[in-house]
Simulated assay, not measured.
Amino acid sequence: MKVAIIGAGNMGSAIARGLVLGKLIKAANITVANPTNKKLESLKDFNKELQVTNSNQIAVNDAEIVILAVKPWLIKEVIDKLTFDFHKQIIVSVAAGIPFSEYEQWTDSSAKIFRVIPNTAISQQESMTLIASHNASKEEEHLILNLFSEMGMAILIPEKQMAAATAITSCGIAYVLKYIQAGMQAGIEMGLYPQDAMKMVAQSVKGAATLILNNNTHPSVEIDKVTTPGGLTIKGINELEHNGFSSAIIKAMKASSN
Rank of each mutant, 00 (worst) to 15 (best):
H87P: 13
V92Q: 03
S109L: 15
E140P: 03
N119H: 09
F148G: 01
R115C: 09
F84Y: 15
Y103I: 13
I131W: 03
E140L: 06
P99Q: 06
W106G: 08
P118M: 00
H134R: 11
A163D: 14
A111D: 08
A111I: 15
G152N: 04
V116Q: 05
A164L: 04
V78Q: 00
A136Q: 14
E140N: 12
G152C: 09
S109Q: 15
N135L: 02
F84E: 08
P158K: 06
A163E: 07
T83K: 11
D80K: 04
A165R: 09
S93F: 00
Q161K: 12
A165N: 15
H142D: 12
V116M: 03
P99H: 08
D85E: 06
S137Y: 14
P118N: 06
L130T: 00
K81W: 10
Q124G: 11
L82T: 12
K81I: 13
A121M: 06
I90E: 04
I91L: 08
I117R: 10
L82D: 08
F114V: 05
A167D: 07
Q125L: 13
E159L: 03
A167E: 05
T120W: 02
D85A: 03
I144C: 02
F114I: 04
E139T: 10
L156H: 09
N146R: 12
K81P: 04
I98T: 07
N135H: 15
D80R: 04
N119A: 07
V116N: 05
V116C: 05
S137R: 11
A167H: 12
A95S: 09
V116I: 07
K81G: 13
K81M: 12
H142L: 12
N146Y: 06
P158C: 04
A154W: 01
N146E: 11
I117C: 09
M153D: 07
A95K: 01
A167L: 03
Y103D: 07
T129C: 08
I98E: 05
A167M: 02
G152V: 11
A136V: 10
A136W: 14
H142Y: 12
E126M: 15
S123G: 13
A165I: 05
T107Y: 02
F148N: 04
S93Q: 04
I117P: 14
N146L: 11
F114E: 00
N119E: 07
E141T: 14
